[in-house]
Amino acid sequence: MDTGVRPDRRPAIAICAWDPTFTAWDPVEDLSGEPWNPVGARTLPIPGMASAETLAAALSALLAKGECGALLLVGQTAHPDAFRLQMRAENRRLDHSDRLDHTGPGVARATAPAAEIVRALADAGLNALAASDAEQDAGSYILYRILNDLPDGPASPSIGLIRAPLNAPNAKVQLAVKTAASAIARHLAPLSRPHVA
């Protein structure tokens, strides 16, 4: 029976502020209760969790199931003034006592289009830079876990981490996240049409 409802073929991008106390990013713009979506994609808002290990495992599982083609992690930076797009994460345990994965690479590189995101942020009037240094916090730990769990191959999802300066007003954080997500979404392909037997 045809219900008349067409499947949503837009690719999905998960957006997650890993720290549940960081409330500057709110995916719901208005009283509709519907999350904001970038042009050509749909947003999967993922709530932060107190346990970085649990959140990293949940996000890795979401990506492994193919439920989204991209992930943007959102958090804060210890550095002042500029939004920072973190380009890599180090192989360290959450408490920094040792390597997280003794057989994994020492550094994992984010797969999101860094140069394009930084350009888009600048075009939006935001002070932004791409940073090679990994900040020693749960965001870097989660980023490494997710990148290290990705399968090899050309179809790897786009993974990025954007950090807001501590003094950034909520409106600028919202603009930065939307701008970064929109830049990522431009590289996502529509979902394939279902096969009809």
Rank of each mutant, 00 (worst) to 15 (best):
Asp26Trp: 00
Ile142Pro: 00
Leu62Gln: 09
Glu53Met: 09
Ile46Gly: 00
Lys65His: 15
Asp149Ala: 15
Asp26Leu: 07
Ile13Gln: 00
Ala17Phe: 04
Thr3Arg: 07
Val107Asp: 00
Glu90Leu: 07
Arg42Thr: 11
Leu44Trp: 05
Pro151Ile: 01
Leu62Tyr: 12
Asp152Ser: 14
Asn170Ile: 10
Thr103Lys: 07
Ile184Trp: 05
Arg109Gln: 05
Ser192Gly: 13
Ala176Gln: 03
Pro194Leu: 14
Leu126Tyr: 08
Ala110Phe: 07
Thr21Gly: 13
Gln86Thr: 03
Ala112Ile: 00
Gln76Tyr: 08
Gln86Met: 09
Ile184Gln: 02
Ala50Asn: 08
Leu73Phe: 08
Ser182Cys: 11
Asp19Lys: 06
Asp152Thr: 12
Leu72Met: 02
Asp137Gly: 09
Glu53Val: 07
Pro47Gly: 11
Val74Gly: 02
Leu71Val: 09
Pro157Gln: 01
Leu85Ala: 05
Arg163Met: 05
Gly40Ser: 10
Asp81Val: 11
Asp2Pro: 15
Asn170Val: 14
Ala17Lys: 02
Pro20Phe: 02
Ala64Thr: 03
Ala114Pro: 01
Thr3Cys: 12
Asn148Arg: 08
Gly104Asp: 06
Leu73Gln: 10
Gly75Asp: 11
Gly4Asp: 04
Phe22Tyr: 14
Arg163Asp: 01
Ala78Cys: 13
Ala57Cys: 09
Pro47Ala: 12
Glu34Gln: 14
Leu63Lys: 04
Gly33Asn: 10
Glu135Arg: 00
Phe22Ser: 06
Leu72Lys: 00
Gly4Lys: 06
Ala78Met: 09
Leu100Gln: 08
